[in-house]
Amino acid sequence: MTTTTQPGIRPANATGKITYTPVDGRLLDVEDLHVEFHTDDGIAKAINGVSFTLDQGESLAILGESGSGKSVTAQAIMGILDMPPAKIPHGAVKYCGVDLLTMPDDRRRWVRGAEIAMIFQDALSSLNPVFPVGWQIAEMFRQHRGMNKSDAQAQAVRLMERVAIPAAKERVKAYPHQFSGGMRQRIMIAMAIALDPAVLIADEPTTALDVTVQAQIMSLLQELQQERQMGLILITHDLGVVADVADRSVVMYAGRLVETANVYDLYRNPAHPYTRGLLESIPRLDQKGQTLAAIGGLPPNLLRIPPGCAFNPRCRMAKDVCRVDLPALREVASGRHSACHFAEEVIDA
């Protein structure tokens, strides 16, 4: 892939550059997104109608266990799903009002990276082991901004300093394996923010890191987000991290949103039995003598999602209606939504 052969990647200074401006601060608008995986054994419904929005300067957490569809959602937004086996039969992902899913490939590539960037869990496998990290960062500027080598290199050093890599000038020539896990994640972040994206998606950015390093990386992400007024989508299973960082949170279960709320409401007074169960099941550092209560069972098989509410076989509140009717995500209090027939009871509990 080079600038000359890929007409889709237009240098920012070239004429005809497309600019995207958010309307009323709205960056992303995901509407009724569906994703299926076609396998030998049938169609696995990974995402079944997910809608949410992201505004400038907002940090949104997508919370869920493995298989809930949280990472697939991010990949669909990024346009990095493997298709096939994946298929998007329905839905739209609007970035500043423009649907990314119907956008021509070359334009989409330009958006990816320059407008929407992503950080992955495993920094080591996301960086190319055979090139120095500085070169990899500089290449972003050369490709997208048409900078010359030395300018790009200088920019790379500046970025590495920004993400607090000590002795950036000397280490710009080092290779990914010469960095510790935390430092590699910083380099990933530097690459992600290099082109000033408006949206940053972080997929389990600290899961592989030690707790002290995790705290550093999360505070760096928060700092950068506020400084650049980015929209941040944080994908995680860690309730602690969400409580520390996010403004708003959506909870996913079996490819659907079961609850959306600002984090304060979500933790103080969850409106879905799944969210409640999760909160009761995790041990807390600041509590002693606590009784852990587990949610029974397992997340459902995506090939055979139970009829009605997908959570009903594990839900201790489930009634007959839950086994038949799929509860819609509805507003249960101002600014908060729940997909439970008995949401009011759950909130009052």
Binding site: F37, T39, G42, K70, P85, A86, Q121
Partner: peptide, 16 residues
Amino acid sequence: MTESATVVQAVEATNA
């Protein structure tokens, strides 16, 4: 780790 891979693998596991 991509979740798409996880999904495909899970489908195989459930099939098993």
